[in-house]
Amino acid sequence: MKLVIGGYFQGKLDYVLGGNMLTDFCIVDGELPNAEQLQESKDNGKTVIVNHFHEWMRASIRQGKNAEQEILEFISNAPGCIVISDEIGNGIVPIDSFEREYRERTGRIMVKLAEQADEVVRVICGIGQRIK
């Protein structure tokens, strides 16, 4: 698995696509692919990209799901996938408790994903810095 992080509008997805054909990928946005999509990408040798991972985290936390378990299970089923997420923790601790939880849990699961990742890239101004 490859983890790509950075601020918003930094060109993370473009960096990942790297000029390849869109059809080389199975891109899901703010969600995880379902079993069908996963199978289809396996059959056709497509790389799965989970774009806007933080939005999936946010929605999952909002729905009271065990998001951490779900994403770790997903990655063990799709070890070749690419996860793209905004960095959201670099600010004042929010007054709203949901916003605090969202930042904390997203941060911590990203640390875990980074541990498991073969490669971690931080994208700034469209340029990827390989930090792992």
């Binding site: 600010g91 930042r103 849990r105 941060g107 911590r108 640390v111």
Partner: peptide
């Protein structure tokens, strides 16, 4: 330094 949940404390 680091953001919240960045793993800075553990590090």
């Amino acid at each position: 330094t680091g953001g919240s949940g960045s793993g800075k404390s553990a590090y």
